[in-house]
């Protein structure tokens, strides 16, 4: 039905040029380029994402501030993972690894729910280098008595 199929396109930018005759009837969209029999067994970064999967796109430019992650302080409680609205906390084998900046919108929930003292995640200006941010990390807060 059409010269090339949306399914055949690998490059996200190529999609934008498609004419009416190249569209999949009914505007169906596909998650993957090939069958994935048991998707829960495949970690996100190993899936054969179609260019029509939002995973391949990014919303990082929505942010004015970004969460920076400090591994040294983290206790891997996974609060940040469970409450992240944007699947942007990368966690493997019960360990927090880092933030997926392509998908993080900078809401700051991960920082709010982080229970360590000082926090293992803090918001910093978007333009600041993460290593610089780590150098600026605050010290432990004394609890008010």
């Amino acid at each position: 039905m059409g010269k090339k199929s949306l399914k055949d396109i690998k490059d996200v930018n190529e999609i934008k040029e498609l004419g009416w005759d190249e569209l999949i009837p009914g505007a169906a969209l596909f998650s993957f380029t090939e069958p994935v029999e048991d998707v829960v067994e495949v970690p996100m970064d190993e899936r054969p994402y179609a260019p029509t999967n939002s995973h391949e796109w990014q919303v990082g430019d929505w942010r004015v501030e970004k969460p920076v992650y400090n591994r040294d302080l983290c206790i891997d409680c996974q609060f940040c993972w469970v409450f992240c609205p944007d699947m942007s906390i990368l966690s493997r084998d019960k360990k927090m690894i880092g933030v997926i900046y392509e998908h993080c919108k900078g809401c700051g929930i991960c920082v709010e729910v982080c229970p360590t003292n000082p926090k293992s995640l803090l918001m910093f200006p978007e333009h600041l280098d993460n290593n610089e941010a780590l150098k600026m990390w605050p010290k432990k807060e004394e609890k008010e008595k």
Binding site: V40, P43, V59, W62, P85, D86, M87, E102, K105
Partner: peptide, 23 residues
């Protein structure tokens, strides 16, 4: 929660929901 964090999400990032959305 640690065990829950082994889940591989089937809902993807770079959707257009507001930052901080409960949905």
């Amino acid at each position: 929660l640690k065990e829950f964090s082994l889940s591989n999400d089937r809902f993807e990032g770079a959707n257009l929901m507001c930052p901080g959305c409960s949905h």
